[in-house]
Every structure is written in C-alpha cells, then in structure tokens.
Design a protein around this nucleic acid. Structure first.
Lengths: 195, 195
DNA sequence: CGATTTACTTGACGCTGTCAAGTTCGTGAT
DNA sequence: ATCACGAACTTGACAGCGTCAAGTAAATCG
C-alpha cells in the first residue's frame, strides 16, 4: 500500500482536489488557491507542491473532477427521462444545465480560459467521457455528418447554459429552459432518423 | 474644460482602460492588473485608485469598452453583407465570431464570471447596444415571441464562439463556421416571415 | 541497521490589491 | 492677489498569493 496512505497525511492529493472543488464552488474560479486548499487540508502552504507543481496543475485536477460530475449529472437526467430518443436528448440538456446552475464556478472554470494543462491525461479522459454522452444522445438524430448534429446540440445547450450562468435574468427559470429546448429541438427538425 | 485634462496626467482614465484592453488581449483575463495598467500609463501604482477604486471597477470599464468593439465588429460585418435579412443575420454571427477570435481574452473577460460591477451604468449601456444589434437582425424572423428567436440565435452563436475560443479544434476553421451557421439557419426554419 | 527516497515544513522572494498619509497642483472665493 | 480647498497623484506599508530553496521526519530498501 504505497499508493494510498502516505506517511504523514493519508491521501492528500484527493483531499486537496476535493477542497479545490469546494473553493471554486463557493467563491468562483478565482477563489482557487494553493495556500487555501493546503489550509483546508491542514497541511503547510507548500505541501501541495509535490502533488501539484503549479496552480495550473491543481486547477487541471479540479476541472477533471468537474467533468466527472458533469458527466454524472447528464447521465442521471438521461436515466430519469422517458425512454424515447428525444426525451433522452432533452434529458441530457437538462442535466447539462442543472450542473451549470449547481456549480456555476466549476462550470466557468471548466469552460473558461483559466490556465490549466490541456493535454493532461486524466483531464482528457474525463472530458472525453462527457463528449461521449453528447455523441450518444445525438446519434439517433444524425444525418450524413454526425458531428454537425453534435455541434448543433452542443452549441445550443452550451450557449444557453453559459448565458444562464452569466446571470442573464431571462434564462433563470427552469421551466423556461425546458420550453426553450423543446421548441428548439422541434424547430431543428431533429426528428428521429435512425433507430 | 474641467472634465478632460486633469492637471498631472491628461486623460488618465481612458489611458488606463486602453492599457487594460491591451493587457487582456495579450495575456487573457488574469493579466489585468491595477499595477500593470498604472505602469503602462507611466503613473504610480496607486494612481488608478481614484478612477477605479477596485480591480472590479477597472475590469468593468474594460468590459464596457469590449462591448463597444463587439458591437462595432457585428455592425461592420452586417454592413459588408448582402442586403437580405438572412445575410445580415449571418453577417452579425460572423462579426460575433470574428470578435471572439480577434480578442479571445477580452471575449472571455466579458462573458466569463470575473468579478465586475454588473449594474454599472456605462457597462449596461454598452451591453444594451450589443443586444440591440442582435434584436435588430432577429426581428425579420421573429414569430409570436421575438425573444425566443433572439435567444435561439444568441445561444447558437455564443455557444459556438465560446467553444471556438476554448480552443476546440473542430471550430477553428472560418469556412466551417460559415457552413455551420448557414445550414443551422436553414434548419431553424428561420425563413423571413415579416418585412 | 544505515542509506536513500518520499512527504512534508519552514522560510524567503517578488508580485498582487488595497489602505493610509502626504504632496502637488488647479480652481474658486474673498 | 492670495488663501483655502479639493482633486489628482505619490510614497509607503500590509497581507495574501505562487513559487523556489533548504531543512526535517518518516517509510522503504539493500
């Protein structure tokens, strides 16, 4: 058991990431600080350096964890939706939006341009997991070029979520979002094509 | 002429905002700093305090200036477009996207959740100017509820631009963007209804 | 059992925003 | 004309930040 319990603190890395997610959730992207996650974990201000050589490394880990929760939020909403392709797709959109509203700071950290390690393996794996959900719910509506359909849906929901998180009042209501997505899917001629 | 030339420096406020825009353009949202804009303007580190009591105040002014350039970018593209409602609307989208690509740091600062004064009068005026352009080009396609059409177009272009600025490779090509917007407008059944 | 490696601590450096106090200059009143 | 006042700016300080350097304690290994 060399991997988990280190001699001084047990499992410090995970504790730091958890503290980071909480900081970002409560105080937004700029609230993330090496010294604060260290304090939260009860270690010295330079302790995180061994696990995260720079703030960008820490932020990368926080973002990766964000993607995992993001994926889970969509999966939960999909699971709760009626068993039609349209309802599943709408469910994914609601899960997307629900995550953005529940974790606005984390959402902004993930999709903003805050310095982080874009090529980090763990991060890529986590974000690929999110994209896979999008591709999956898009598939039944895909025409000749599946990517185009994925982009249409992604742009739509991401734009809506971004503006909602930005505090635009007209996007604050959840019922309004549901109506918006439903009518937009209808307008998009996103009728089931395959399957 | 009490308003322009202050005794020590002439027109310091505007100089600071200009320096701020340049900093954000070159180094992204986090590159904006009171001390750096002061240095750029050749004044002491605390000089900006009288014009901008906090970093949030300075950022607010930078964002407001961003909206003015944003509006101008859309207006330029609209003016260059053929004289049909669809081409004008597409032009606005291209102007939107072109601004996001030319000033990714400013774009992110404007639409991110960086601390700023949301109710600032100058900022509201500037952002209202941008929204007015959107409403204008949307008007010819509006159904019973004009806001819904505005939101559809805005979400679409903003989502696309956000993801493009985020560095997603598949959105890097300008020709691809044109094709994407054209086909999406077509799909949206955004046929001219009025006028 | 001693040596090495790993995980952490302490301390320091320069940069940041922000506050306090002092200075310089322009304006308006007397 | 001068005096007072206030606006614009300077200097100086403070705490918090990321980050590097050096030291220490604990676990592992030959």
């Amino acid at each position: 058991m060399t991997q988990k319990k280190s001699h001084h603190h047990g499992n410090l890395r995970a504790t730091l990431v958890e503290a980071g997610v909480e900081l970002v959730r409560e105080g937004g992207p700029d609230a993330l600080s090496i010294r604060k996650v260290a304090a939260q974990a009860g270690v010295s201000h330079a302790a995180p350096a061994h696990h995260f050589p720079s703030l960008a490394h820490l932020r990368t880990a926080v973002i990766a964890e964000g993607y995992r929760r993001f994926t889970q939020s969509m999966e939960d909403a999909i699971a709760a939706a009626p068993d039609t392709a349209l309802d599943k797709a709408l469910g994914a959109c609601f899960g997307y939006l629900r995550f953005a509203r529940a974790y606005p700071g984390l959402f902004t950290t993930m999709f903003g341009t805050y310095a982080h390690r874009v090529d980090d393996e763990d991060l890529c794996e986590a974000s690929d997991g999110s994209y896979a959900v999008l591709a999956r719910i898009s598939a039944p509506f895909a025409g000749a070029n599946p990517v185009e359909t994925e982009l249409a849906i992604w742009s739509m929901v991401h734009g809506y979520a971004s503006l909602a998180v930005g505090g635009h009042a007209m996007m604050a209501d959840e019922a309004a979002a549901e109506h918006f997505f439903r009518s937009l899917f209808a307008k998009l001629n996103l009728a089931e094509k395959g399957v």
